[in-house]
């Protein structure tokens, strides 16, 4: 029986078509996606990988809320001009704790995978407040309300708990102190600031990101996030032999 003869019979059965479609359409995803969870080399080892602090996580959520990913990628490709322009190409491990990833698909603005520490806090605040104050030809929207909106912190413990459920290793202590740590990270002189570096590592940025100590604004959170981009691990800048995948 020819293949068309077979089909002539198949198309008389609704359930046959349904099963056929499900089977045929499942194969590609199973072959391409499932092994990414099982092959160890897919994500490099990076023992120095840090977690987002509660303030940085809140900033990341503002980045998502405002749709920044629609115009900015966070994935430097393995191409010479990209490495020259943006820095070492991105490794899988660098977005290991990114639920969801923000690799992006379009660069109406530049890539931000390694934007952290490239500009001062003051520049970031001025630029977000009105991009054309510092880059006259920019077409980015102005985000003036970030500086005047208080950051919501009361639900941060719940956010860390949800992150833990999807695999980010936040400790109980981190969850309990999430709201205090968010405040402390942007108020270095406050008593809450001490625990931040203890829990999240000495390299954590603790400073008044929006230039207004004593206040915790959405601007604090977003700038704290931008300033840590590319600095959660040094894996990408280490010699290849050490940064390579597997054991």
């Amino acid at each position: 029986m020819s293949i068309f003869g077979f089909h002539y019979k198949l198309e008389r059965k609704a359930i046959g078509l349904v099963l056929g479609i499900i089977v045929v359409a499942s194969i590609g995803g199973l072959v391409e996606i499932a092994p990414l969870f099982t092959i160890h080399q897919t994500v490099e080892d990076a023992p120095d990988m840090r977690l987002y602090t509660p303030l940085e996580l809140a900033g990341r959520n503002i980045y998502i809320r405002e749709g920044c990913y629609a115009c900015h990628s966070q994935m430097i490709r393995t191409l010479r001009d990209e490495v020259d322009r943006y820095g070492p190409y991105s490794l899988a491990v660098e977005s290991k704790y990114d639920h969801p990833m923000l690799w992006g698909s379009k660069r109406t603005g530049p890539d931000l995978a390694r934007i952290g520490d490239k500009y001062s806090d003051q520049w970031q605040v001025a630029h977000l407040n009105n991009p054309r104050d510092v880059v006259p030809v920019s077409v980015m929207p102005a985000y003036g309300w970030l500086l005047t909106t208080e950051l919501r912190t009361d639900d941060l413990p719940l956010h860390l708990k949800a992150q833990r459920k999807v695999g980010v290793p936040y400790t109980d202590e981190m969850v309990e102190n999430a709201a205090l740590d968010a405040y402390g990270q942007s108020n270095p002189d406050a008593p809450q600031a001490e625990g931040v570096a203890k829990r999240y590592g000495k390299a954590t940025n603790v400073r008044p990101f929006d230039g207004l100590p004593g206040r915790l604004t959405e601007m604090d959170a977003l700038v704290a996030y931008l300033q840590v981009l590319g600095h959660l691990t040094d894996a990408a800048t280490r010699p290849i032999a050490q940064a390579g995948g597997g054991k």
Partner: peptide, 19 residues
């Protein structure tokens, strides 16, 4: 995050999430 929160976190992360 909770049943009273619009926010959720994707089950997958990084490269698996991208794929």
């Amino acid at each position: 995050v909770s049943l009273g929160s619009a926010k959720s976190y994707s089950l997958f992360s990084g490269v698996q999430d991208a794929m």
